[in-house]
């Protein structure tokens, strides 16, 4: 789900040297944090060109450079994106969300994550998924009466073990 390809690029975005890329990233992030809503890479490029951020004189950045930068930021979890037409628009993740997602990832790297976190649902095998759909299909949906749904009594079912 994460856009890892962007992260694995050996050199900076579209030939821009690494250090410059880091500076650009923080500049782009600042633009998105100050923006009122989601921005497309084109909007970001426009605002970069308008200046207001950064100091040194810089030539126009190509569209693909900006796209690379925002996808890297997205891969780092600093931006969220939404599909819009053929491309994406990006929004900066707020501080609390950042802390939470960092934590989620850190816990995810641990071997016994599930033992500490009480997750709402555990993994589902193909067979479990089939069974689950079956059970839910037997359920009449929003309450309309007191009749017992076709779920079966798990106690009785367990008795056949």
């Amino acid at each position: 789900m994460r856009d890892d390809d962007a992260q694995r690029l050996p050199s900076g975005p579209a030939g821009v040297p690494r250090r410059a890329a880091g500076a650009l990233e923080s500049e782009v992030l600042a633009i998105l944090r100050e923006a009122d809503g989601a921005l497309s890479p084109g909007d970001v490029r426009q605002r970069l060109a308008d200046g207001g951020h950064g100091d040194g004189p810089r030539g126009e950045l190509s569209y693909s450079t900006v796209v690379t930068i925002v996808s890297r930021l997205h891969a780092k979890g600093l931006l969220t994106r939404n599909r819009s037409g053929r491309g994406f628009t990006y929004t900066a993740v707020d501080e609390a969300g950042l802390a939470a997602s960092r934590m989620s990832r850190a816990l995810g790297s641990g071997t016994d994550r599930d033992a500490v976190l009480s997750r709402f649902v555990s993994g589902l095998s193909e067979r479990d998924a089939r069974l689950l759909r079956d059970l839910l299909a037997g359920d009449p949906g929003p309450p309309d009466g007191d009749h017992v749904p076709a779920g079966g009594d798990p106690g009785q079912a367990a008795g056949r073990e």
């Binding site: 589902l124 076709a150 056949r160």
Partner: peptide
């Protein structure tokens, strides 16, 4: 397959 297999299923079902 039906519901008698629930006893053998994973926790979610």
């Amino acid at each position: 397959a039906r519901r008698m297999s629930v006893a053998w299923a994973g926790p979610v079902p």
